[in-house]
Write a protein that binds this DNA or RNA. Structure first.
Length: 550
RNA sequence: GCGCCAGUAGCUCAGUCGGAUAGAGCAACGGAUUUCUAAUCCGUGGGUCAGGGGUUCGAAUCCCUUCUGGCGUGCCA
């Protein structure tokens, strides 16, 4: 992290010169190259404190900083900026570090082993995963990979709503299809039932296993059997889809299990102890409005059953009991009205609500030939995650889902994702990686080797584009930390795309491997080795393959 | 009505947390391969950062307000 280094240098010089310096100032990359590799507003921020004009203060600091050998030039500009130009030797030193670090480059102990729970996807076990789940899967998994890489102790968790109303309806839907198989006329399929073709498949498979036997047991037992069968099968389907997407979970939390273990009662009794519940209209209420929710919420319905809210409270209670430092829920946009009451419950239970973070992923619109693909859940006409993966491939799908920041609506262009051309950013990134592999192979054939590489040779790397590539490579660890802190995987997609672009441009202008120019070639091969290393790491963190050949 | 998210080039979006002349890609047009992969590169045009006000040395970024779009606002999950 160069910015940190420069900050430290500034602080040191200020101390030596007896200049007051608070930490409010910034070090950043200016828009214009003529303004240096980095610049700082330190003199402007601290001018009042030192009773000096910004320009005067800047001059003083700059004089001290000029003495450091990592800077080629330190200059002062108009309102009071200090501009830093780094020495080539500094870049070369960093480049060697990058290659030496290998696939650990960018990793750090930044997260200080803080325990992080990432809950995402958590789709109802009532059907195949859809594209929204796919976005959540790509988002959550990439965030997990990066947070782990920068030193957090992260866990992925999938919460299965395998109890309650929805799964009863699922069982009834299977029942109807099962009856149909046995020649019964079930008439119009109820609108609230699950219409998807997979329900029929489930019935067929159940029938293959059990035949008409199920008619000889009570309806209650039969429905229970169907429920278990359907849940098991759908869970396997979802697991399989996620596996195709290279996403796994450390833990699957079952709502049914929470109920069986009495966590719901536990949560309810804590709320009662905290005097946050009361009875009214034959129902039990939670006084969530005490904690900022807009109104109180029902916990136990007048029919004696808990609302879906209760298991959610119980589930979150376990998250806190398990001792996580950071708890991240990745939710769809339709849940944001729900969060205030959840946070109210956490406060009522006496836990630190600040540990809970909610990330809302916005909706996805699929486009095909410029037309939005209309999806209707009722008619069972949805595009599943599996169909999407088959259609565009895992790599493209994961990239496209990560490419936008979570709060943006995502327009997914199916045509573009399938294209194998420069228009498709996924291939653009992968091709850069493959291209390097190809150059390295060629160099090997030409007997240009990198073994026992002498750092002095890197002096040949002095072109502006070479230095800005190295600069970009040096940024990598900082990008990962920024990404982890802000929970914004899209930064990695942009970063990778930019790096790939730099390689392609570099390739177009310079002969990298040239047997007639051994020393220069070795320097350049060293550079592209570093690029390839970083490309491979970023692609891996995004769950995208890094091919050697395309 | 209230709440949340968004509004940046014709389109899709970035913008490193308040910095200097707001950036890419696509689309349009014009160029570049006797070459380490043209799945690539170079060039050209394109902007009232939705509107207005405020905060300060300085605002796409922070505050207020108006407008537009999406979602939410169940004893459904």
């Amino acid at each position: 992290m160069i910015k940190e280094k420069i900050r430290k240098d500034i602080f040191n010089v200020a101390k030596q010169l007896d200049i007051h310096c608070n930490d409010q100032f910034m070090v950043e990359v200016p828009n214009l190259k003529t303004h240096g590799d980095f610049s700082s507003n330190v003199a402007m921020v601290n001018s009042r404190l030192n009773k000096l004009k910004p320009m005067e203060l800047a001059e003083k600091l700059a004089d001290g900083l000029k003495k450091k050998k990592d800077y080629r030039k330190v200059e002062v500009a108009k309102p009071g900026f200090i501009n830093f130009f780094l020495a080539n030797s500094f870049y070369h030193k960093m480049l060697v570090n990058i290659v030496n670090a290998g696939d650990t480059y960018g990793s750090s102990d930044y997260g200080k082993k803080r325990k992080v729970l990432l809950e995402f996807v958590s789709a109802n076990p009532t059907g195949p995963l859809n594209v929204v789940s796919a976005r959540a899967a790509a988002y959550g998994d990439t965030l997990f990979r990066v947070m782990t890489f920068v030193g957090f102790h992260a866990f992925r968790e999938f919460y299965i709503n395998d109890a309650g109303n929805q799964v009863d309806i699922l069982a009834e839907s299977v029942e109807l299809r099962y009856r149909e198989l046995h020649g019964e006329r079930v008439g119009e399929f109820p609108p609230e039932a699950y219409h998807g073709e997979y329900v029929r498949d489930l019935a067929v498979r159940l029938n293959a296993q059990e035949g008409s036997k199920l008619f000889h047991i009570s309806e209650k037992d039969r429905l229970e059997k169907m429920k278990l069968f359907a849940l098991e099968e759908i869970h396997k389907m979802q697991l399989e889809s996620l596996k195709r997407f290279d996403v796994t979970f450390e833990n699957w939390m079952s709502e049914k299990k929470l109920r069986q273990e009495g966590i719901l009662e536990e949560a309810l009794s804590y709320l009662a102890e905290a005097k946050c519940t009361y009875e009214s209209d034959d129902a039990v209420w939670f006084s969530s409005s005490k904690f900022g929710d807009e109104k109180d919420r029902v916990l136990i319905k007048s029919d004696g059953n808990p609302t879906y809210f209760v298991p959610d409270i119980a589930y979150h209670l376990t998250k806190f009991q398990r001792g996580f430092d950071i708890i991240i829920d990745v939710l769809g946009p339709d849940h944001h009205g729900y969060v205030p009451r959840l946070k109210a419950a956490i406060q009522a239970l006496g836990h630190d609500v600040n540990k809970l973070e909610i990330v809302y992923l916005q909706h996805i619109n699929l486009f095909e030939q410029g037309q939005q693909v209309k999806m209707s859940k009722r008619a069972g006409k949805i595009i599943t995650m599996d169909e999407l993966i088959s259609e565009v491939g895992k790599d493209a799908a994961r990239y496209f889902f990560i490419d936008r920041k979570p709060s943006s609506h995502l327009n997914f262009d199916l045509e573009l994702a399938k294209k194998k051309s420069n228009e498709n950013p996924v291939y653009y990134c992968q091709y850069a990686h493959a291209r390097i592999a190809s150059i390295l192979k060629k160099a090997k054939n030409d007997k240009i080797t990198l073994k026992k590489f002498d750092i002095k040779n890197l002096k040949k790397l002095d072109k502006p584009d070479e230095l800005s590539i190295i600069k970009h490579l040096i940024d990598f660890p900082g990008v990962l930390i920024l990404l982890a802190d802000n929970r914004e995987p899209h930064r990695l997609a942009s970063y990778t795309y930019e790096l790939a672009g730099m390689l392609h441009k570099y390739y177009a202008v310079h002969q990298i491997s040239d047997p007639d120019n051994l020393e220069l070639s070795q320097s350049r091969l060293f550079l592209i080795t570093a690029i390839q290393n970083v490309l491979a790491i970023s692609l891996h963190l995004m769950g995208i393959s890094a091919p050697k050949k395309m």
